[in-house]
Design a protein around this nucleic acid. Sequence first.
RNA 1: GGUGCGGUAGUUCAGCUUGGUUAGAAUACGUGCCUGUCACGCACGGGGUCGCGGGUUCGAGUCCCGUCCGCACCGCCA
Length: 589
Amino acid sequence: MYRSHTCGELRIADAGKEVTLAGWVQRVRKMGSLNFIDLRDRYGITQLVANEDENKEINAMVEKLGREFVIQARGVVTERQSKNSKIATGDIEIKLLEVKILNAAATPPFTIEDNTDGGEDIRAQYRYLDLRRNPLKKALELRHKMAHEVRNYLSNVGFMEIETPYLIKSTPEGARDFVVPSRMNPGDFYALPQSPQTFKQLLMVAGYDRYFQIVRCFRDEDLRADRQPEFTQIDCEMSFVEREDILNTFEGLAKSLFKNVLGKEFPEAFPRMSYADAMEYYGSDKPDIRFNMKMNNITAQMQGKNFSVFDAAEYIGAIVVPGCAEYTRKQLDELTEWVKRPQVGAKGLVYIKLGPDGSIKSSIDKFYTPQELKAVADKIGATGGDLIFILSGDKKKMQGALGTLRLEMGNRLGLRDNSVFAPLWVCDFPLLEWDDETQRFYAMHHPFTAPKPEDMGKFFSNKKEDLEQVNANAYDFVLNGTEVGGGSIRIHDSKIQERMFEVLGFSKEDADYRFGFIINAFKYGAPPHGGLAFGFDRFCSLFGGQETIRDYIAFPKNNNGRDVMLDAPSGIDQIQMDELFLKSIAPVK
RNA sequence: GGUGCGGUAGUUCAGCUUGGUUAGAAUACGUGCCUGUCACGCACGGGGUCGCGGGUUCGAGUCCCGUCCGCACCGCCA
């Protein structure tokens, strides 16, 4: 037996017991003939004490210890003379009788503490050491708890967890696929799934009317703090359901996560917003509604006053920044530079300051009378002490830019508190997006998404304008401005599915080659169905209050998709190469 | 594919604007002292390919060019 207790469980009630602990040496504090050791394991830290008065040889053993040594310690639980309220075991310590080194350790390259001195790079290289630290341990515990709660909730409402394959067929529409060469089928490749989309729909055809899976998905695209090449989805699908059934079911799942993981109750239904409204009022398809500061279209009010910049603009939008009328010239100049950055893309920033005394000062005083500016302020609900920002130009671009500015002002005013949660359903996305470059439509969600029933007429029209107006029966789950889930009612009629491929410009042969299996399956009794997938890593990071999902993945990839610990990806040896490629692809004589 | 910031002891950083003696600090590490520490304290010590390559210069950590790596973002992510 290596240990009788963990390093997190002994309390004052255990005083007098002889116990054996095992763990890692966090720190040794040597005080001459009285020495302390903090012993750490997954469960906590327990202080060991070596007192020469009571045990003559004990300090000789302690002398040999270094940071991160793995030791076994036998001793007696004793009440501390001076307690430490910072740790759960802080009322007791173990008076050492014996210390055994189970394994020595090299000095770690960074300190294994909550506030480590190590940078991201070195910690990624030694991920197994970084994972010993509390913040990462807490993150993985949160993830485990969430996964457990998901399985619990969904199982209780009749969902079956079914695994689907990782080696599948490449369907190069949307994100790039990771591909895997097949040794037994020289020259052919598997693809790793971007999502189990088609499989879950086939499971519906097969009659497994409530399916879920916590499943790894793969996308060979550039990374971000919240995007990894392999990531995890909570993938779900249901049969004989309409949109309401799906939203209710997964709103229930989200609420149970909030309640059982974070202890937060959401008695009301989550708010809903159309895609059109999201773009109009927040300049984003994933609005952060933790704060208001909605965008206003003031194009009509501002035009016709001989201000050529505004008169030439397709769109003029404004946000009211509460209580910021005191902004200095320097602050305004800095924000003007900020919106001009390519990432935001505005040409300039117009402001109107509404003094608390009713005075009005703006960067467009030359073109507008105070009365005209006051009328605009009244219309958008700005009052004394507020600051109005106005952007103008191309509608789509400026809505995006104003939305970005809105988020930035939210940040600067501290309105985006990570301990506050504002869930939201965004619905009624356009079904199709026209791409000028390739001169064809792309599915905004994916090609299995059903058009809304009332738009079916337009869906079969051959006019581009009609098709552009078709809405999808799709919905996103948005939390604090992050898209954490998305789904749709699917097409279950093979005629409509064929029409979809036609609209997307696939020839019959093309569609058959790529998706023949599903078109075929739909001919054998596909039930009406739909579903949703949550981005599990993002869900965890939001719950944990972090921006990056890396902390919630035990062994993540870096910015360039590399695993710096393994040094992967890497070359393979010639024998492997020959078996996979060269024999078949190189000309054989 | 693009933009920005960064790369200097094991680690985190300062030094670079204005080139010039032996490149500093903190922490970690080592040695010694220390009986109530818990970020223990005190003293002493060891520790550097200034990412890499090239250029300018009498002289480059510092200036210029290229390149590699890291982070954030844009494009991309059906």
